[in-house]
Design a protein around this nucleic acid. Structure first.
Lengths: 259, 259
DNA sequence: CGTTATATGATTGAGGTCAATCATATCTTT
DNA sequence: AAAGATATGATTGACCTCAATCATATAACG
């Protein structure tokens, strides 16, 4: 009765995608669709659940709500502790009330998650174009959550484009927390034009600009420049000041750096 | 053993708020928290569910539109096959390309899910204010997904408010698929002012208006009227025409009804 | 105050899910 | 080619949820 391993793997991949597509899949349905017994269906469920983004429930399995945005799960990846430290520092800059903007990206998603741990928020208005950040902040105490509309970009799980830029005109932010893919002597940069353009639009509406980048972005130059150093209120990073200077990044003021 | 009526009512109100707060409440937990037997807990659940916005599931009860359980909510209860049938009919009205709007609500979420089963879409622009629908449609083949920004309402997992209404001004839809909580002789209605207001704004930008309601909404009147029958292109429902007329709902044209 | 209505808890049985066990076929490894 | 490993399906019993039923205490009502 044994079946080749690669067929098992393929069947489980199919099971995962079936669950993702249907949202919920009863065990009986799995048996029918995959042509296996209940026992095997359950065993497959255990295996698929262990790989993440699927939750077993009584009677079947459920796709996690965020599974559509799984590509941007900030809890995975090597830079996780670094991101958590950065998020900690960034959240410390957020007042109890006011209006802030949260960008897309895994680092900022970590900021959003850290923000939910704050128990002292009175009435903080948070706007974001990141659906991942939004799903993290949904229902957070003391937070009035707004989503800046726009075209959905699958890769970032974020909303961008001309409609997003136009929607920003309505806003005025006390602070914005942005991510970048590179920082060098010239400032912060990103690899996609649409992202850079959107971020520049955010800068126009914002008093205090915090860029959050982990040390791996050090000295890296990506095509689309977003902001020069002077424009930043602070750079939030886990890199040491010495590392920054050796990479040719000038530190005009101690205030600009929260490492 | 009988308990005063006002105490029963108060206990059920508390139960409702407990469910709303926790999103999901197992029966055992209800017994513990309210100090009643399982039998009473179930009876209370039946009563609370009848009053709306709560859905019983195997093992407990679920607050409607809870984002964390969006998928589970959609498939839960005996209304699932009805919703699936409605979704099937609604999706049949959607062309291969064009621009459509999808509302919030579990019925429309089912429409979104059914839409992902369509394999013939060439370039369909879908705008929505529902994050649940967005997460379903994220990455769907042939779909350009847009999210209409606004204030996030936790209960609906949707975006509403003045910013959402204003964002609609940019749009022109070939068709819109909307949900309602009641339909009677006067037309379709909803129980929340913000929802009704938003839906009215959608109507202004839309050529063909499809309201999707299951038969349980029949003859039910909720406070905020959204649209009279004349304004609809079609009502998509699983109720029989005879049922509609006996509930005092006029059928001006066969074309208006896809049951 | 007496009668009626009903909210409650206990019990029962039906229906369903699930983990554990076991024999078996067959893939995998040596 | 032989031995070992393992994926599978059938079976079993435990466990849980739930609706229905019943007796009872007590609120509600005339």
């Amino acid at each position: 009765m044994r079946v080749p391993q690669h067929l098992v793997d393929r069947r489980r991949e199919e099971l995962r995608s079936l669950i993702r597509r249907d949202g919920f899949l009863p065990v009986a349905e799995i048996c029918r669709r995959l042509g296996v017994s209940e026992a095997t269906a359950r065993r497959d469920l255990v295996a698929v659940e262990a790989n993440g983004h699927i939750t077993r429930t009584y009677g079947g399995a459920l796709a996690d709500y965020n599974s559509a945005f799984a590509s941007l799960d900030e809890r995975s990846g090597r830079a996780r502790p670094a991101k958590a430290r950065i998020a900690e520092k960034a959240v410390a800059q957020i007042p109890r009330s006011g209006t802030i903007f949260l960008d897309a990206g895994t680092t900022i998603q970590a900021v959003a998650r850290a923000l939910t741990h704050r128990r002292d928020l009175t009435h903080l208005v948070v706007a974001t174009n990141s659906l991942a950040a939004a799903s993290v902040l949904a229902g957070a105490a003391g937070v009035e959550l707004h989503v800046v509309g726009g075209m959905f970009l699958n890769r970032q799980a974020a909303l961008m484009g001309t409609r997003a830029v136009r929607a920003l005109e309505d806003w005025s932010f006390d602070a914005a927390f942005l991510s970048g893919e590179g920082m060098d002597d010239a400032g912060v940069s990103n690899s996609h034009e649409s992202i850079a353009e959107f971020q520049r639009a955010v800068l126009h509406q914002t008093d205090n600009i915090y860029f959050c980048l982990d040390a791996s972005k050090l000295g890296r130059s990506t095509p689309h420049r977003v902001a020069p150093w002077k424009q930043l209120t602070a750079l939030v990073t886990d890199a040491l000041p010495k590392q920054l200077t050796t990479h040719g990044i000038e530190l005009s003021s101690r205030k600009h750096l929260r490492a």
